[in-house]
Amino acid sequence: MTTSKLGKYLSGLGLLGLVIFLCVIPFYSTDYIVSVLLDILTWIGLTQSWIILSGFTGYISLGHSAFFGIGAYVMAILWLKLPYPLIILISAMSSMTLAFAIGFPVLRVRGPYFVILTLGLSEFAKYIFINYEVNVKGTVGRILLGVPNIRTLYFSLLIIAIVTILCAYLIKRSRFGYGLFSIKEDEDAAESLGIDTSIYKWLALGISAFFPGAIGATMALRRTYIDPYSVFDPIVSFQIIVMAFFGGIGKLHGPVLGACILTLISEFFWARYPHYYLIILGVILVFIVKIMPSGILGIFDLFGKAGKVVKFVRRK
């Protein structure tokens, strides 16, 4: 009991240290380092928001690129018309509103069909925007001028990432969270125990869509040029899933680890072997999925089990 309390205390202290470190580091490092960290924060926020829906309820979404794209577009449309934090908030709300609007019919579909449906819907959203740009506006994309500097964007993303993690953490420990886990385990049994499964899934989807909207908006400023192909890129959805599974979706820190490690690995290989980096990354991923089905966290579990076995043998 005391050791676990001590452990909690230490990990809390570690987290606080990490946050302070992340707040201070941009003032002492180059733009390159800041941009890498910014990437990491982006993916942490995205995977964490994805976990709120897909990790908790088991409804694997391939549609988060759409929420990201909506956020980016709202930012592009409102940029310079309103203060920048306000636009981020509006972008997030727009993504959430869209999620709420499509939620009920979409969430009636279960399993692999849900995965395919979300992928289809996000592609659908992409083509709506392409059509709009080409036929109504007569352009291909949008350029954003006078964007904030990289350190401002870094801090925006830091706040968004922290809020996302906090939100996921609070949900996980709440009554709402237990409702979502029950849906993941067995939706019919959950329903028969008094859980309003349709409302719960719907809320989870809405909350889960809020953060990609905010992140998409911020990333639109980082990229300074957006078009539907780049912000509605399904690769975003795939990358979220890969990172989440890479880290392990059983615990909240799994996806965070996955996002950090995979961003760093891909950055490393991209800088050194630009022609081969995707191949190398692919091989690493196949290898990892093959040997660690429950992600990086699974390795720690293995170590834990091995430790128990050693203890047991020694006692004998």
């Binding site: 709440s174 009554r175 237990y178 409702g179 959950a190 125990l193 008094g194 859980i195």
Partner: peptide, 14 residues
């Protein structure tokens, strides 16, 4: 606990 959280009695906290 899930039963206790959601059934007739609906415990508000975990």
């Amino acid at each position: 606990m899930v039963g206790a959280l959601f059934g007739v009695q609906k415990c508000k906290n975990v």
